[in-house]
Write a protein that binds this DNA or RNA. Structure first.
Length: 325
DNA sequence: AACTATTTCAACCGCACGACA
DNA sequence: GTGTCGTGCGGTTGAAATAGT
């Protein structure tokens, strides 16, 4: 398609942003809001491409950007999420308040990718066929001594981040809410759902088990039990063959709403409370078709395959397992 | 102190996708 | 159905910072 570039590159500034440019962009967005990136530079009086403005705002100037080193908790979460999602940086970033996809991507390429590779040498292939790749200049010998990370800020960075306080790990916020982003590429991994009528039969078309368990789980009580399962080393998104469960939908949902209303059972099922069940919007918010009103059984129990349960439980195990993100 | 090697990360690039005319 | 726009994404680059000699 003969599409024009997002901007003429003639006469536009490139490279590092100056403090003055940052100020102009920030002031403009504060006054007019985000969006309309293509026209923004002209209106704001910036000699920049709209894309560049968007990137600068999203990755650096936004007021909610968290600065400072990635905490161990965050690091652990990144690793878990990368195991589940592969290089879906924006989706991963959506689970780390204040962190940007670019930051996480860089952190992975410079730190975690190598660390994870060395820990699980046989598990270098991510779901999408992307090897946990380091860019060419990041492929280095693991035995090489590492430089201790220290904050590096250009003049403009110092200026533009001065107001952003140092890092605050998610775990330091007991009531941390999800950050919802717009990354839906993950929906590509959706497994074809079984025919609807299959769902209503007590069959297991593709590792989906909605069978009404003979053992009806007791009503959920208070705090969820600790999760102890770990993600299998070879688990990938392809393992989630459990109907039209959409992990991205789940990740984009507000799980805090079910903090005290759901219970993982030992038989790979989840039982939700009457309150949660009654609030259909919350259930749908899970992006979890298995929990939609027409596929949840009378006892409000839905079963998932063992792989999903394992991964999900392990994912939620972040924060010590006694608390849903 | 001076120089080189290595690492970091902000910024760029190309592509994909949904919305819309 | 087709083309364009607006936006978002992941991969890559290269200048600057830092470590090593």
């Amino acid at each position: 398609m003969g599409r024009s570039p997002c901007c003429s590159k003639e006469g536009l500034n490139r490279g590092a942003w100056t403090a003055q440019e940052d100020r102009i962009l920030t002031n403009y967005i504060k006054a007019h809001g985000e969006g309309r990136w293509r026209n923004l530079p002209k209106k704001a009086g910036l000699q920049r491409c709209g894309k560049s403005c968007r990137l600068r705002w999203l990755n650096y100037l936004r007021p909610d950007i968290k600065r400072g080193n990635i905490s161990p908790d965050e690091e652990e979460l990144i690793i878990r999420l990368h195991k589940l999602l592969g290089n879906r940086w924006s989706l991963i970033a959506g689970r780390l308040p204040g962190r940007t996809d670019n930051e996480i991507k860089n952190y992975w390429n410079t730190n975690l990718g190598r660390k994870v590779q060395s820990n699980t040498p046989t598990n270098s292939q991510s779901r999408s066929g992307h090897v946990d790749q380091l860019s060419p200049n990041h492929q280095h010998d693991d035995d090489r001594p590492r430089k201790v990370k220290s904050p590096k800020h250009s003049e403009t960075s110092k200026m533009s981040t001065a107001d952003n306080s140092a890092s605050e790990s998610p775990s330091s916020k007991p009531d941390a809410r999800l950050v919802k982003n717009n990354a839906f590429k993950c929906s590509k991994v959706l497994i074809d759902p079984p025919p609807e009528q299959e769902l209503h039969r007590n069959e297991d078309p593709i590792n989906t088990d909605f069978a009404a368990s003979a053992a009806v789980a007791p009503a959920p009580t208070g705090v969820l039990p600790p999760f102890t399962a770990n993600i299998p080393a070879d688990l990938s998104m392809d393992d989630f063959e459990i109907g039209d469960i959409c992990l991205s939908g789940f990740l984009n949902s507000d799980t805090s709403s079910i903090a005290n209303q759901g219970q993982f059972n030992s038989n790979n099922s989840i039982t939700i409370s009457d309150d949660l069940f009654a609030d259909h919007s919350q259930v749908q918010g899970l992006g979890w078709a298995a929990l939609s009103s027409d596929s949840v059984h009378d006892n409000h129990q839905a079963n998932a395959g063992p792989n999903f349960h394992q991964a999900f439980a392990s994912f939620l195990d972040y924060n010590g397992g006694d608390q849903w993100l």
